[in-house]
Design a binder for these strands. Structure first.
Length: 111
RNA sequence: UGGGCUGGCCGGGCGACCGCGUGAGCCGGGGGUGACCCCGCUCCCGAGGAAGGUCCGGGCUCCACAGGGCAAGGUGGUGGGUAACUCCCACCCGGGGUGACCCGCGGGACAGUGCCACAGAGAACAGACCGCCACUGCCGCCCUCCGGGGCGGGAGCGGCAAGGGUGAAACGGUGGUGCAAGAGACCACCAGCGGCCCGGGCGACCGGGCCGGCUAGGCAAACCCCACCUGGAGCAAGAUCAAGAAGCCGCCCCUCGGGGCGGCGCGCACACGUUCGAGGGCGGCCCGCCCGAGUGUGCGGGUAGAUCGCAGGAGGCGACCGGCAACGGCCGUCGUAGAUGGAUGGUCGCCCACCGGUGACCCGCGAGGGUCCCGGGGACAGAACCCGGCCUACAGGCCAGCCCGUCCG
RNA sequence: GGGCCCCUAGCUCAAUUGGCAGAGCAGGAGACUUUUAAUCUCUUGGUUGUGGGUUCGAGUCCCACGGGGCCUA
Protein backbone atom coordinates (compact mmCIF):
# COMPACT_ATOMS: atom_id res chain seq x y z
CA UNK A 1 0.00 0.00 0.00
CA UNK A 2 1.05 3.61 -0.39
CA UNK A 3 2.61 5.61 2.40
CA UNK A 4 -0.01 7.31 4.57
CA UNK A 5 0.93 10.81 3.37
CA UNK A 6 0.14 9.81 -0.24
CA UNK A 7 -3.26 8.26 0.48
CA UNK A 8 -6.54 9.94 -0.28
CA UNK A 9 -8.94 9.00 2.49
CA UNK A 10 -12.02 11.19 2.52
CA UNK A 11 -14.99 10.98 0.22
CA UNK A 12 -15.10 14.75 -0.07
CA UNK A 13 -11.52 14.88 -1.40
CA UNK A 14 -12.45 12.31 -4.04
CA UNK A 15 -15.44 14.38 -5.10
CA UNK A 16 -13.46 17.60 -5.25
CA UNK A 17 -10.72 16.07 -7.40
CA UNK A 18 -13.16 14.42 -9.80
CA UNK A 19 -15.21 17.60 -10.25
CA UNK A 20 -12.49 20.27 -10.28
CA UNK A 21 -9.55 18.41 -11.76
CA UNK A 22 -8.26 18.08 -15.29
CA UNK A 23 -9.53 14.88 -16.87
CA UNK A 24 -8.15 12.46 -19.42
CA UNK A 25 -9.67 9.16 -20.38
CA UNK A 26 -8.76 6.00 -22.23
CA UNK A 27 -10.37 2.63 -22.96
CA UNK A 28 -9.47 1.15 -19.58
CA UNK A 29 -9.23 4.10 -17.17
CA UNK A 30 -9.93 7.77 -16.50
CA UNK A 31 -7.49 10.09 -14.71
CA UNK A 32 -8.45 13.21 -12.73
CA UNK A 33 -5.73 15.60 -11.49
CA UNK A 34 -6.45 18.60 -9.29
CA UNK A 35 -3.32 20.67 -8.88
CA UNK A 36 -3.13 22.71 -5.71
CA UNK A 37 0.14 24.63 -5.57
CA UNK A 38 0.87 24.07 -1.89
CA UNK A 39 4.00 22.53 -0.36
CA UNK A 40 2.51 19.06 0.48
CA UNK A 41 3.07 15.55 -0.84
CA UNK A 42 0.90 14.53 -3.80
CA UNK A 43 -2.05 12.33 -2.86
CA UNK A 44 -3.61 9.53 -4.90
CA UNK A 45 -6.93 7.65 -4.74
CA UNK A 46 -8.53 4.89 -6.79
CA UNK A 47 -12.12 4.24 -7.84
CA UNK A 48 -13.07 0.78 -9.09
CA UNK A 49 -16.82 0.32 -9.35
CA UNK A 50 -18.87 -2.84 -9.32
CA UNK A 51 -19.28 -2.57 -13.08
CA UNK A 52 -15.66 -3.70 -13.44
CA UNK A 53 -16.26 -7.15 -11.99
CA UNK A 54 -16.53 -9.16 -8.81
CA UNK A 55 -14.37 -8.60 -5.75
CA UNK A 56 -11.46 -10.65 -7.07
CA UNK A 57 -11.28 -8.70 -10.32
CA UNK A 58 -11.75 -5.33 -8.62
CA UNK A 59 -8.99 -6.01 -6.13
CA UNK A 60 -6.58 -7.14 -8.84
CA UNK A 61 -7.23 -4.01 -10.91
CA UNK A 62 -6.79 -1.80 -7.88
CA UNK A 63 -3.52 -3.50 -6.91
CA UNK A 64 -2.09 -3.19 -10.39
CA UNK A 65 -3.00 0.48 -10.58
CA UNK A 66 -1.58 1.17 -7.15
CA UNK A 67 1.78 -0.37 -8.01
CA UNK A 68 1.89 1.44 -11.33
CA UNK A 69 1.10 4.79 -9.73
CA UNK A 70 3.61 4.25 -6.91
CA UNK A 71 6.39 4.09 -9.51
CA UNK A 72 5.28 7.43 -10.98
CA UNK A 73 4.76 9.46 -7.80
CA UNK A 74 7.80 11.60 -8.66
CA UNK A 75 6.06 12.95 -11.76
CA UNK A 76 3.23 14.53 -9.76
CA UNK A 77 3.51 18.19 -8.70
CA UNK A 78 3.53 19.03 -5.00
CA UNK A 79 0.11 19.30 -3.38
CA UNK A 80 -1.77 17.73 -6.28
CA UNK A 81 -4.56 15.22 -5.90
CA UNK A 82 -4.81 12.36 -8.39
CA UNK A 83 -7.85 10.08 -8.79
CA UNK A 84 -7.64 7.07 -11.07
CA UNK A 85 -10.95 5.59 -12.10
CA UNK A 86 -11.12 2.14 -13.73
CA UNK A 87 -13.45 1.36 -16.63
CA UNK A 88 -14.98 -2.10 -17.12
CA UNK A 89 -12.44 -2.83 -19.88
CA UNK A 90 -9.67 -2.68 -17.25
CA UNK A 91 -10.75 -6.10 -16.01
CA UNK A 92 -9.31 -7.82 -19.07
CA UNK A 93 -6.23 -5.65 -19.50
CA UNK A 94 -2.71 -6.75 -18.58
CA UNK A 95 -0.43 -4.77 -16.31
CA UNK A 96 1.61 -3.53 -19.26
CA UNK A 97 -1.47 -2.24 -21.08
CA UNK A 98 -2.67 -0.42 -17.98
CA UNK A 99 0.80 1.08 -17.54
CA UNK A 100 1.02 2.49 -21.06
CA UNK A 101 -2.50 3.93 -20.93
CA UNK A 102 -1.79 5.45 -17.53
CA UNK A 103 1.34 7.10 -18.93
CA UNK A 104 -0.58 8.55 -21.89
CA UNK A 105 -3.27 9.98 -19.65
CA UNK A 106 -0.80 11.40 -17.16
CA UNK A 107 1.15 13.09 -19.94
CA UNK A 108 -1.99 14.79 -21.22
CA UNK A 109 -3.08 15.91 -17.76
CA UNK A 110 0.34 17.22 -16.77
CA UNK A 111 0.97 19.08 -20.03
C1' U B 1 -15.15 -55.70 -18.33
C1' G B 2 -19.64 -52.16 -18.80
C1' G B 3 -22.90 -49.24 -15.87
C1' G B 4 -24.18 -47.27 -11.11
C1' C B 5 -24.39 -45.83 -5.53
C1' U B 6 -22.07 -43.80 -1.17
C1' G B 7 -18.26 -41.56 1.80
C1' G B 8 -13.64 -38.94 2.27
C1' C B 9 -9.64 -35.83 0.30
C1' C B 10 -6.90 -32.33 -2.97
C1' G B 11 -7.98 -28.10 -5.62
C1' G B 12 -1.57 -26.48 -9.20
C1' G B 13 4.06 -27.48 -7.54
C1' C B 14 9.34 -25.72 -7.30
C1' G B 15 12.50 -21.50 -8.02
C1' A B 16 14.59 -16.30 -9.28
C1' C B 17 14.20 -10.87 -9.25
C1' C B 18 11.40 -6.09 -8.21
C1' G B 19 7.41 -4.35 -4.80
C1' C B 20 3.40 -4.41 -0.36
C1' G B 21 1.57 -5.61 5.04
C1' U B 22 2.14 -7.63 10.41
C1' G B 23 5.96 -9.03 13.69
C1' A B 24 11.04 -9.60 15.24
C1' G B 25 16.28 -8.21 15.16
C1' C B 26 18.78 -4.41 16.97
C1' C B 27 22.95 -2.86 12.51
C1' G B 28 22.95 2.39 10.30
C1' G B 29 20.76 7.52 9.97
C1' G B 30 17.32 11.37 11.87
C1' G B 31 13.90 13.65 15.73
C1' G B 32 12.77 14.00 21.08
C1' U B 33 14.76 15.76 28.18
C1' G B 34 12.41 11.00 28.08
C1' A B 35 9.06 6.85 27.24
C1' C B 36 9.42 6.45 22.24
C1' C B 37 8.66 7.83 17.00
C1' C B 38 10.22 8.12 11.62
C1' C B 39 13.37 6.31 7.49
C1' G B 40 16.65 2.44 5.76
C1' C B 41 18.68 -2.80 6.16
C1' U B 42 18.15 -8.20 7.43
C1' C B 43 14.96 -12.31 8.76
C1' C B 44 10.10 -15.00 9.66
C1' C B 45 5.12 -15.21 8.22
C1' G B 46 1.13 -13.45 4.93
C1' A B 47 -6.57 -15.63 2.01
C1' G B 48 -10.61 -20.15 1.17
C1' G B 49 -13.07 -24.86 0.76
C1' A B 50 -16.29 -22.29 0.07
C1' A B 51 -13.01 -16.54 2.76
C1' G B 52 -19.33 -16.08 -0.75
C1' G B 53 -24.95 -15.82 0.29
C1' U B 54 -26.29 -13.93 5.29
C1' C B 55 -30.55 -18.83 6.34
C1' C B 56 -29.82 -20.56 11.62
C1' G B 57 -27.02 -21.39 16.34
C1' G B 58 -23.37 -19.87 19.97
C1' G B 59 -19.01 -17.21 22.18
C1' C B 60 -17.80 -12.07 23.39
C1' U B 61 -19.42 -6.86 24.84
C1' C B 62 -22.92 -3.24 26.70
C1' C B 63 -28.00 -2.43 28.50
C1' A B 64 -32.17 -4.71 31.37
C1' C B 65 -33.50 -8.31 35.14
C1' A B 66 -40.43 -7.49 39.37
C1' G B 67 -43.73 -10.04 38.01
C1' G B 68 -48.73 -11.74 36.03
C1' G B 69 -52.08 -12.23 31.86
C1' C B 70 -52.77 -11.92 26.58
C1' A B 71 -50.75 -11.75 22.05
C1' A B 72 -46.13 -12.57 18.56
C1' G B 73 -42.31 -15.56 16.38
C1' G B 74 -39.92 -20.29 15.89
C1' U B 75 -39.59 -25.72 16.15
C1' G B 76 -42.50 -30.44 15.15
C1' G B 77 -41.54 -39.11 14.34
C1' U B 78 -38.13 -41.45 18.41
C1' G B 79 -33.46 -41.83 20.92
C1' G B 80 -28.71 -39.74 21.14
C1' G B 81 -24.46 -35.96 19.98
C1' U B 82 -23.22 -30.82 20.95
C1' A B 83 -21.65 -24.63 23.89
C1' A B 84 -26.07 -24.40 20.94
C1' C B 85 -29.07 -25.08 16.59
C1' U B 86 -33.82 -25.07 11.79
C1' C B 87 -27.23 -28.83 12.34
C1' C B 88 -25.15 -34.02 12.74
C1' C B 89 -25.69 -39.53 13.81
C1' A B 90 -28.59 -43.96 14.53
C1' C B 91 -33.31 -45.98 14.36
C1' C B 92 -38.88 -45.99 13.25
C1' C B 93 -42.82 -44.95 9.70
C1' G B 94 -44.31 -43.64 4.56
C1' G B 95 -42.73 -43.37 -0.69
C1' G B 96 -39.19 -44.64 -4.91
C1' G B 97 -35.42 -48.10 -7.03
C1' U B 98 -33.81 -55.17 -9.50
C1' G B 99 -30.04 -53.41 -6.01
C1' A B 100 -26.08 -50.55 -3.43
C1' C B 101 -29.06 -46.64 -1.82
C1' C B 102 -32.15 -42.23 -2.17
C1' C B 103 -36.39 -38.79 -0.81
C1' G B 104 -39.92 -36.82 3.17
C1' C B 105 -41.87 -28.89 7.22
C1' G B 106 -43.04 -36.81 9.41
C1' G B 107 -47.82 -33.88 15.96
C1' G B 108 -53.45 -33.35 15.85
C1' A B 109 -59.09 -33.68 10.93
C1' C B 110 -64.57 -37.49 17.08
C1' A B 111 -61.95 -29.33 20.16
C1' G B 112 -64.13 -25.88 16.82
C1' U B 113 -64.60 -22.70 12.17
C1' G B 114 -63.87 -23.16 6.97
C1' C B 115 -62.85 -25.05 1.75
C1' C B 116 -63.41 -29.19 -1.94
C1' A B 117 -64.24 -25.24 -8.65
C1' C B 118 -65.67 -27.80 -13.40
C1' A B 119 -67.91 -32.39 -14.62
C1' G B 120 -71.58 -35.49 -12.49
C1' A B 121 -78.08 -38.05 -10.59
C1' G B 122 -75.40 -37.30 -6.17
C1' A B 123 -69.43 -34.12 -2.90
C1' A B 124 -69.70 -34.58 3.26
C1' C B 125 -76.26 -36.23 9.29
C1' A B 126 -74.95 -38.15 0.44
C1' G B 127 -77.77 -39.23 -4.07
C1' A B 128 -81.32 -41.72 -8.13
C1' C B 129 -80.06 -39.86 -14.74
C1' C B 130 -79.72 -44.50 -17.38
C1' G B 131 -80.80 -49.00 -14.97
C1' C B 132 -83.05 -53.46 -11.94
C1' C B 133 -87.76 -55.25 -9.63
C1' A B 134 -93.01 -55.50 -7.96
C1' C B 135 -98.02 -53.53 -8.55
C1' U B 136 -102.09 -50.84 -11.50
C1' G B 137 -104.09 -49.16 -16.21
C1' C B 138 -103.18 -48.70 -21.78
C1' C B 139 -101.39 -50.18 -26.85
C1' G B 140 -99.41 -53.84 -30.47
C1' C B 141 -98.24 -58.95 -31.99
C1' C B 142 -98.56 -64.33 -31.20
C1' C B 143 -100.77 -68.86 -28.96
C1' U B 144 -105.41 -70.84 -26.96
C1' C B 145 -108.37 -76.35 -24.11
C1' C B 146 -111.86 -69.36 -24.65
C1' G B 147 -110.64 -69.47 -18.29
C1' G B 148 -106.48 -67.02 -19.97
C1' G B 149 -101.17 -67.13 -21.08
C1' G B 150 -96.51 -65.26 -23.42
C1' C B 151 -93.48 -61.34 -25.74
C1' G B 152 -92.59 -56.18 -26.75
C1' G B 153 -93.56 -50.84 -26.03
C1' G B 154 -95.06 -46.84 -23.11
C1' A B 155 -97.51 -44.30 -18.55
C1' G B 156 -98.45 -43.93 -13.23
C1' C B 157 -97.26 -45.20 -8.15
C1' G B 158 -93.66 -47.57 -5.16
C1' G B 159 -89.08 -50.57 -3.75
C1' C B 160 -83.54 -50.92 -4.61
C1' A B 161 -78.57 -49.22 -5.07
C1' A B 162 -75.70 -54.39 -7.85
C1' G B 163 -74.08 -52.45 -12.90
C1' G B 164 -73.15 -48.04 -16.54
C1' G B 165 -71.34 -43.19 -16.73
C1' U B 166 -68.65 -38.27 -14.13
C1' G B 167 -64.71 -37.03 -11.08
C1' A B 168 -58.64 -36.15 -7.71
C1' A B 169 -62.15 -38.36 -4.44
C1' A B 170 -68.73 -41.79 -5.01
C1' C B 171 -69.47 -44.20 2.12
C1' G B 172 -64.94 -51.21 1.98
C1' G B 173 -63.14 -55.92 -1.49
C1' U B 174 -64.09 -61.25 -3.00
C1' G B 175 -67.41 -65.32 -2.54
C1' G B 176 -71.98 -66.97 -0.62
C1' U B 177 -76.96 -66.80 1.99
C1' G B 178 -81.11 -64.13 1.13
C1' C B 179 -84.85 -61.43 -1.82
C1' A B 180 -89.86 -59.45 -6.32
C1' A B 181 -85.17 -57.03 -7.28
C1' G B 182 -81.49 -55.81 -3.98
C1' A B 183 -78.39 -54.00 -0.05
C1' G B 184 -73.21 -55.73 5.87
C1' A B 185 -79.71 -57.24 5.86
C1' C B 186 -76.85 -61.81 7.37
C1' C B 187 -72.23 -65.22 7.05
C1' A B 188 -66.83 -66.56 5.87
C1' C B 189 -62.09 -64.68 4.52
C1' C B 190 -59.22 -60.23 3.45
C1' A B 191 -58.17 -54.84 3.96
C1' G B 192 -58.94 -50.91 7.27
C1' C B 193 -60.87 -48.51 12.24
C1' G B 194 -61.54 -48.55 17.67
C1' G B 195 -60.82 -51.06 22.46
C1' C B 196 -58.44 -54.73 25.62
C1' C B 197 -54.56 -58.35 26.54
C1' C B 198 -49.64 -60.87 25.76
C1' G B 199 -44.50 -60.58 23.96
C1' G B 200 -40.07 -57.51 22.11
C1' G B 201 -37.78 -52.51 22.24
C1' C B 202 -35.10 -46.81 26.57
C1' G B 203 -38.55 -45.05 22.78
C1' A B 204 -40.93 -43.90 18.00
C1' C B 205 -42.91 -48.56 16.92
C1' C B 206 -43.13 -53.86 15.67
C1' G B 207 -45.25 -59.05 16.13
C1' G B 208 -49.43 -61.98 17.91
C1' G B 209 -54.37 -62.92 20.10
C1' C B 210 -59.48 -61.65 21.47
C1' C B 211 -63.71 -58.48 21.14
C1' G B 212 -66.71 -54.62 18.93
C1' G B 213 -69.13 -52.02 15.19
C1' C B 214 -69.66 -53.36 9.99
C1' U B 215 -66.61 -48.47 7.26
C1' A B 216 -64.97 -43.97 9.28
C1' G B 217 -63.10 -38.90 2.67
C1' G B 218 -59.24 -35.14 1.87
C1' C B 219 -56.96 -30.29 2.97
C1' A B 220 -53.85 -27.86 9.00
C1' A B 221 -47.00 -25.42 3.54
C1' A B 222 -56.38 -22.73 5.48
C1' C B 223 -57.62 -20.40 10.37
C1' C B 224 -56.58 -23.21 14.43
C1' C B 225 -55.46 -26.85 18.75
C1' C B 226 -51.41 -29.37 21.47
C1' A B 227 -46.25 -29.79 23.24
C1' C B 228 -41.59 -27.41 23.64
C1' C B 229 -38.33 -23.05 22.90
C1' U B 230 -37.38 -17.58 22.71
C1' G B 231 -34.77 -10.64 27.20
C1' G B 232 -32.78 -6.31 23.86
C1' A B 233 -29.00 -4.80 20.78
C1' G B 234 -24.74 -5.53 18.10
C1' C B 235 -17.11 -5.09 17.29
C1' A B 236 -19.75 1.41 13.95
C1' A B 237 -20.62 -3.82 20.49
C1' G B 238 -17.65 -1.72 24.12
C1' A B 239 -13.14 0.46 26.94
C1' U B 240 -9.20 4.16 27.42
C1' C B 241 -6.79 8.57 25.69
C1' A B 242 -6.57 12.96 22.84
C1' A B 243 -9.12 17.12 20.64
C1' G B 244 -13.22 20.45 21.40
C1' A B 245 -15.41 27.69 19.35
C1' A B 246 -18.74 30.35 22.40
C1' G B 247 -21.62 28.59 26.62
C1' C B 248 -23.92 26.17 31.16
C1' C B 249 -23.65 23.23 35.85
C1' G B 250 -21.08 20.92 40.10
C1' C B 251 -16.71 20.21 43.21
C1' C B 252 -11.81 21.68 44.85
C1' C B 253 -7.82 25.24 45.36
C1' C B 254 -7.05 30.26 45.81
C1' U B 255 -2.41 35.23 45.74
C1' C B 256 -10.25 36.87 44.97
C1' G B 257 -7.71 38.37 39.11
C1' G B 258 -8.47 33.49 38.35
C1' G B 259 -6.71 28.23 38.06
C1' G B 260 -7.58 22.84 38.15
C1' C B 261 -10.82 18.50 37.74
C1' G B 262 -15.42 16.28 36.28
C1' G B 263 -20.07 16.46 33.64
C1' C B 264 -23.62 18.39 29.75
C1' G B 265 -23.29 19.39 24.70
C1' C B 266 -25.41 23.13 18.00
C1' G B 267 -29.59 26.25 15.86
C1' C B 268 -34.82 26.95 14.47
C1' A B 269 -40.04 25.44 14.44
C1' C B 270 -44.17 22.65 16.33
C1' A B 271 -46.49 19.41 20.03
C1' C B 272 -47.03 17.50 25.00
C1' G B 273 -45.54 18.21 30.13
C1' U B 274 -43.27 19.10 35.73
C1' U B 275 -46.96 15.34 41.37
C1' C B 276 -54.26 16.33 37.54
C1' G B 277 -46.97 14.13 35.83
C1' A B 278 -44.77 14.32 29.43
C1' G B 279 -41.46 10.76 28.40
C1' G B 280 -38.41 6.41 29.35
C1' G B 281 -37.17 1.08 31.24
C1' C B 282 -39.08 -4.01 32.39
C1' G B 283 -38.68 -7.64 24.02
C1' G B 284 -44.92 -6.12 21.85
C1' C B 285 -50.07 -4.82 24.39
C1' C B 286 -52.80 -4.47 29.25
C1' C B 287 -52.34 -4.48 34.57
C1' G B 288 -48.51 -3.65 37.84
C1' C B 289 -43.54 -1.89 39.32
C1' C B 290 -39.32 1.45 38.76
C1' C B 291 -36.87 6.05 36.97
C1' G B 292 -38.56 10.79 36.21
C1' A B 293 -38.04 17.19 34.35
C1' G B 294 -37.81 17.82 30.37
C1' U B 295 -39.25 14.84 26.22
C1' G B 296 -40.92 13.73 21.23
C1' U B 297 -41.19 15.02 15.95
C1' G B 298 -39.54 17.74 11.63
C1' C B 299 -35.92 20.84 8.97
C1' G B 300 -30.92 22.59 8.64
C1' G B 301 -25.81 22.04 10.34
C1' G B 302 -21.50 19.45 12.62
C1' U B 303 -18.30 15.16 14.21
C1' A B 304 -16.46 9.97 14.17
C1' G B 305 -8.37 11.02 15.38
C1' A B 306 -5.27 7.27 18.15
C1' U B 307 -4.73 2.78 21.13
C1' C B 308 -7.06 -1.53 23.05
C1' G B 309 -10.97 -4.99 21.77
C1' C B 310 -7.88 -8.27 17.64
C1' A B 311 -5.98 -13.36 16.72
C1' G B 312 -4.32 -19.56 21.87
C1' G B 313 -9.49 -20.89 19.75
C1' A B 314 -15.87 -25.18 21.56
C1' G B 315 -7.94 -24.77 17.47
C1' G B 316 -5.28 -28.30 13.72
C1' C B 317 -2.82 -33.17 13.19
C1' G B 318 -1.61 -38.31 14.91
C1' A B 319 -1.84 -42.74 18.10
C1' C B 320 -4.80 -45.37 21.95
C1' C B 321 -9.58 -46.28 24.63
C1' G B 322 -15.30 -46.13 24.74
C1' G B 323 -19.40 -45.93 21.17
C1' C B 324 -23.05 -49.05 15.24
C1' A B 325 -22.26 -43.79 14.46
C1' A B 326 -22.38 -38.48 15.26
C1' C B 327 -19.05 -37.77 19.11
C1' G B 328 -16.46 -38.15 23.77
C1' G B 329 -12.03 -39.30 26.91
C1' C B 330 -6.78 -39.39 27.30
C1' C B 331 -1.72 -38.80 25.61
C1' G B 332 1.66 -36.70 22.24
C1' U B 333 2.71 -32.95 18.81
C1' C B 334 2.27 -28.08 15.85
C1' G B 335 2.46 -22.56 16.16
C1' U B 336 -0.18 -20.64 11.25
C1' A B 337 -3.12 -13.53 8.12
C1' G B 338 -4.61 -9.26 11.04
C1' A B 339 -5.51 -4.55 6.86
C1' U B 340 -8.54 0.24 8.08
C1' G B 341 -9.61 4.03 0.84
C1' G B 342 -8.26 -1.44 3.22
C1' A B 343 -1.45 -5.67 2.68
C1' U B 344 -0.80 -11.22 -1.68
C1' G B 345 0.83 -7.40 -7.28
C1' G B 346 4.43 -7.51 -11.61
C1' U B 347 8.09 -10.11 -14.83
C1' C B 348 10.27 -14.86 -15.98
C1' G B 349 12.14 -20.25 -16.08
C1' C B 350 11.16 -25.56 -15.35
C1' C B 351 7.59 -29.27 -14.14
C1' C B 352 2.36 -31.42 -13.50
C1' A B 353 -3.05 -31.72 -14.84
C1' C B 354 -6.01 -30.37 -19.20
C1' C B 355 -7.19 -28.88 -24.54
C1' G B 356 -5.93 -28.51 -29.89
C1' G B 357 -2.68 -30.05 -34.24
C1' U B 358 -4.76 -30.39 -41.68
C1' G B 359 3.04 -32.55 -37.24
C1' A B 360 6.48 -37.05 -37.12
C1' C B 361 7.42 -42.13 -35.68
C1' C B 362 5.99 -46.96 -33.50
C1' C B 363 2.19 -51.02 -32.18
C1' G B 364 -2.63 -53.06 -34.01
C1' C B 365 -6.63 -56.31 -39.53
C1' G B 366 -9.51 -52.46 -37.11
C1' A B 367 -11.82 -49.18 -33.46
C1' G B 368 -7.81 -47.23 -31.10
C1' G B 369 -3.23 -46.87 -28.08
C1' G B 370 1.94 -45.12 -27.04
C1' U B 371 6.38 -41.72 -27.55
C1' C B 372 8.20 -37.10 -29.19
C1' C B 373 7.46 -32.05 -31.18
C1' C B 374 4.60 -27.31 -31.68
C1' G B 375 0.80 -24.09 -29.83
C1' G B 376 -2.82 -22.88 -26.09
C1' G B 377 -3.72 -22.91 -20.91
C1' G B 378 -5.13 -22.53 -15.24
C1' A B 379 -12.39 -23.73 -12.15
C1' C B 380 -15.33 -21.03 -8.53
C1' A B 381 -13.65 -17.15 -6.14
C1' G B 382 -10.58 -12.39 -1.77
C1' A B 383 -10.33 -12.47 5.22
C1' A B 384 -12.46 -7.53 8.18
C1' C B 385 -14.68 -9.71 15.96
C1' C B 386 -14.39 -15.14 16.26
C1' C B 387 -16.33 -20.06 15.94
C1' G B 388 -20.21 -24.45 14.72
C1' G B 389 -23.61 -25.61 10.78
C1' C B 390 -26.74 -24.92 6.40
C1' C B 391 -27.19 -23.28 1.36
C1' U B 392 -25.07 -21.82 -3.22
C1' A B 393 -20.69 -21.64 -7.11
C1' C B 394 -16.68 -24.80 -8.92
C1' A B 395 -11.86 -26.72 -14.39
C1' G B 396 -9.84 -31.04 -13.13
C1' G B 397 -7.96 -34.98 -10.16
C1' C B 398 -7.05 -38.82 -6.14
C1' C B 399 -8.54 -42.68 -2.51
C1' A B 400 -11.86 -46.23 -0.19
C1' G B 401 -16.21 -49.26 0.27
C1' C B 402 -20.55 -51.27 -1.94
C1' C B 403 -24.51 -52.74 -5.90
C1' C B 404 -26.34 -54.63 -10.80
C1' G B 405 -25.16 -56.83 -15.60
C1' U B 406 -21.78 -59.59 -18.92
C1' C B 407 -17.56 -62.90 -19.94
C1' C B 408 -13.78 -66.50 -18.24
C1' G B 409 -12.07 -70.09 -14.52
C1' G C 1 -24.41 -4.82 10.69
C1' G C 2 -29.94 -4.73 11.09
C1' G C 3 -34.82 -4.59 8.63
C1' C C 4 -38.38 -4.59 4.46
C1' C C 5 -40.39 -5.00 -0.47
C1' C C 6 -40.85 -6.36 -5.75
C1' C C 7 -40.19 -9.81 -10.33
C1' U C 8 -46.99 -11.58 -14.89
C1' A C 9 -47.31 -10.21 -23.06
C1' G C 10 -42.13 -5.94 -26.37
C1' C C 11 -43.74 -1.63 -22.35
C1' U C 12 -47.09 0.01 -18.10
C1' C C 13 -50.04 -2.57 -14.88
C1' A C 14 -54.64 -6.09 -13.35
C1' A C 15 -56.07 -11.04 -11.49
C1' U C 16 -59.12 -12.69 -3.07
C1' U C 17 -61.35 -17.63 0.44
C1' G C 18 -56.10 -21.65 -4.50
C1' G C 19 -60.52 -23.14 -9.69
C1' C C 20 -60.37 -21.23 -17.87
C1' A C 21 -54.15 -15.69 -16.85
C1' G C 22 -56.69 -10.25 -18.52
C1' A C 23 -56.70 -4.57 -19.88
C1' G C 24 -54.31 -0.29 -22.21
C1' C C 25 -50.26 1.06 -25.39
C1' A C 26 -47.10 -1.16 -29.01
C1' G C 27 -46.94 -4.96 -33.34
C1' G C 28 -49.77 -7.40 -37.68
C1' A C 29 -54.08 -7.47 -41.19
C1' G C 30 -58.28 -4.86 -43.11
C1' A C 31 -61.64 -0.44 -43.73
C1' C C 32 -61.79 5.04 -44.44
C1' U C 33 -58.26 8.58 -47.29
C1' U C 34 -55.10 10.70 -53.59
C1' U C 35 -51.12 9.36 -49.64
C1' U C 36 -49.67 9.82 -44.42
C1' A C 37 -51.50 10.78 -39.54
C1' A C 38 -55.86 10.22 -36.70
C1' U C 39 -60.23 7.03 -36.23
C1' C C 40 -62.88 2.19 -36.57
C1' U C 41 -62.92 -3.39 -36.92
C1' C C 42 -60.36 -7.91 -36.38
C1' U C 43 -56.05 -10.23 -34.60
C1' U C 44 -51.01 -12.10 -32.90
C1' G C 45 -48.35 -12.33 -28.48
C1' G C 46 -47.35 -15.81 -21.76
C1' U C 47 -42.15 -22.18 -19.70
C1' U C 48 -46.40 -15.95 -14.55
C1' G C 49 -37.68 -14.78 -12.82
C1' U C 50 -35.50 -20.25 -11.95
C1' G C 51 -35.87 -25.09 -9.49
C1' G C 52 -38.37 -28.14 -6.06
C1' G C 53 -42.59 -29.22 -2.65
C1' U C 54 -47.93 -29.22 -0.51
C1' U C 55 -52.68 -29.94 -3.09
C1' C C 56 -57.27 -33.24 -7.36
C1' G C 57 -55.58 -28.39 -8.97
C1' A C 58 -50.45 -23.07 -7.61
C1' G C 59 -49.59 -16.39 -10.68
C1' U C 60 -51.64 -17.16 -5.55
C1' C C 61 -49.40 -21.36 -0.12
C1' C C 62 -44.21 -23.33 1.62
C1' C C 63 -38.71 -23.90 0.80
C1' A C 64 -34.12 -22.85 -1.78
C1' C C 65 -31.71 -20.00 -5.47
C1' G C 66 -31.22 -15.62 -9.14
C1' G C 67 -32.06 -10.46 -10.28
C1' G C 68 -33.66 -5.53 -8.76
C1' G C 69 -35.02 -1.74 -5.24
C1' C C 70 -35.86 0.84 -0.48
C1' C C 71 -35.16 2.18 4.80
C1' U C 72 -31.76 2.44 8.91
C1' A C 73 -26.92 2.58 11.95
Amino acid sequence: MLAAEHRLTSGAAFGAAVRAGRRSGSRTLVVHLAGADVPAPPRVGFVVSKAVGNAVVRNRVKRRLRHLVAARLGLLPAGSVLVVRANPAAAGASGAELGSELDRCLDRVLA
